[in-house]
Design a binder for these strands. Structure first.
Length: 442
RNA sequence: GGGCCGUUAGCUCAGUAGGUAGAGCACCGGAUUUUUAAUCCGGGGGUCGCAGGUUCGAUUCCUGCACGGCCCA
């Protein structure tokens, strides 16, 4: 048989060598024997050549016969071999692998080469991505790529990365969201669309945040947020079953239960319960006082305080998957007004393990209301909220004016979902090549 | 932005109550025909993150900086 791989172990016994060859499928032992293994060169016997010139890290191809050693291990007795690539650098330590997180992040290839667990984690990541893609395709969603470079950024609260097109002689932004483009597709006539949207937000990095990340957005015409909740329940439940083999998931030492239905909780009621007063009726002074009391910066504008207080008092503590429902209108300029609760929208967020995993609405499709809400947002921006986009996307409003069917929409924090399914504590552990500060010597 | 911790050989880590450093793996040389982190003998390899300060002398003590990790904002 013929096989190729990287040499990851080499044990020399005089006229016999055992070596381990690793390829993507795993490890295979090969042996070089005097009188059997041909030398690639004329002036040095085969085993002597292998002893002298084969190093750990080299990639070689071998040809030989399969047998079992005295200890019973399946092994290829090498008749002929050749170098396919010479490794000029030492492999990390064979027993501990690469422990230094900085080196793992900066040189992921070293991490992958030296730790089979890392190779397995990212292989599984790829399978999860395909599984999710299939989940949407099977339900009639079309995958639609939309622009990463946008003339007006919108669809979320965030500071953008700004760039410039020489060809178009105009400023462009790396998208912070693809929401307003997928909605244009609903206007155009597609009823179910989705995109793995690589988004860019020029903000801090921590366990849960990274400037370049992925939101899986999906929109379905004639659905509302209740329909979307059922879809999300199915997605999370089925993903956990598919990749864990049960309805529970071990995450960072906790057992999370994904049995349906997930718990549901009203945003305002839950927050009121923890605060001891109604946050929507309360004067600013009372909210600021509560913020101070709970370690939230009270200088945030009122609408941000609501959001931050909720995360601090409620969201951070939600372990098993929980839908938080019906947010205050001011926090959600793209969501439809609630059909019963005044001052609220039809929206949900899914929290798991204290993380916000999903954000979803019954989408606002009233162009007049949308314009009014954008203008209110603009006023908040001018009052100092830097995370609100500076400009109104007039082209998007024009699309709405043409008529967008009522729709349900979701955004899933993809890396966070991967963190859950791969049991990783930090977003950087599910990113292949996370960016770090440049080192001076490099 | 703040707090704590870390940075010593290619990797994993010791260490020096201040006198310029060690181990294992890896690498080089030797022995070895059944190993599984093989073993045995020998060898080479370090601006001890960077810059100042204290000191006769700093990798070690102090300060600042850089990079990273964890936690907080």
């Amino acid at each position: 048989m013929r096989v190729a791989g990287r040499l990851t172990a080499k044990r020399v016994f005089g006229k016999l060598i055992f070596a381990r060859l690793r390829d993507e499928s795993g490890d295979l032992q090969v042996s070089f024997e005097k009188g059997v293994t041909e030398s690639p060169v004329a002036d040095l016997e085969g085993v002597k050549f292998a002893k002298k010139y084969l190093d750990l890290g080299d990639i070689i191809g071998v040809e030989g016969e399969v047998y079992r050693t005295q200890k019973g291990e399946v092994t290829v007795r090498v008749h002929r071999f050749q170098f396919l690539a010479k490794g000029l650098r030492n492999l990390p330590e064979k027993w501990h692998g690469l422990r230094d997180k900085e080196l793992r992040y900066r040189h992921r290839y070293l991490d992958l080469v030296s730790r089979p667990e890392a190779l397995e984690t990212f292989r599984k990541m790829s399978e999860i991505l395909q599984w999710i893609r299939r989940f949407f395709l099977e339900r009639g969603f079309l995958e639609m790529p939309t622009p990463v470079l946008q003339p007006v950024y919108g669809g979320a609260f965030a500071k953008p990365f700004t760039t410039y097109s020489h060809a178009l002689d105009t400023t462009l932004y790396l998208r912070i969201s693809d929401e307003l483009y997928l909605k244009r597709l609903l206007v155009g006539g597609y009823e179910r669309v989705f995109e793995f949207s690589r988004d860019f937000r020029n903000e801090g990095i921590d366990r849960l945040h990274y400037p370049e990340f992925t939101i899986l957005e999906a929109y379905a015409a004639y659905w509302d947020y209740h329909d979307m909740m059922r879809l999300i329940e199915d997605l999370f439940h089925d993903a956990v079953v598919a990749f864990q083999g049960s309805e529970t998931l071990e995450y960072q030492g906790r057992t999370l239960n994904f049995q349906r239905p997930f718990r549901r909780m009203d945003f305002v009621e839950a927050l009121a319960e923890r605060l001891g007063f109604d946050p929507l009726q309360a004067p600013d002074s009372q909210l600021k006082q509560a913020a101070e009391q709970h370690g939230v910066d009270p200088r945030h504008p009122r609408h941000r305080l609501l959001d931050k207080l909720f995360d601090r008092l409620v969201g951070d503590h939600l372990q098993d998957p929980t839908f938080v429902l019906d947010h205050p209108l001011v926090l959600s300029p793209l969501a439809k007004r609630h059909r019963e609760k005044p001052g609220r929208v039809e929206r949900f967020e899914l929290f798991v393990a204290g993380m916000e995993l999903v954000n979803a609405f019954s989408e606002l499709n009233d162009p007049l209301d949308q314009r009014r809400r954008f203008e209110e947002q603009l006023a908040l921006r001018k009052a100092g909220d830097q995370e609100i986009p500076l400009e109104i996307d007039e082209d998007f409003l024009m699309a709405l004016e043409l008529g967008m069917p009522p729709a349900g929409g979701i955004g899933i924090g993809l890396e966070r979902l991967l963190m859950l399914l791969l049991n990783e504590a930090s977003i950087r552990d599910v990113l292949l090549f996370p960016q770090l500060r440049p080192r001076l010597e490099e």
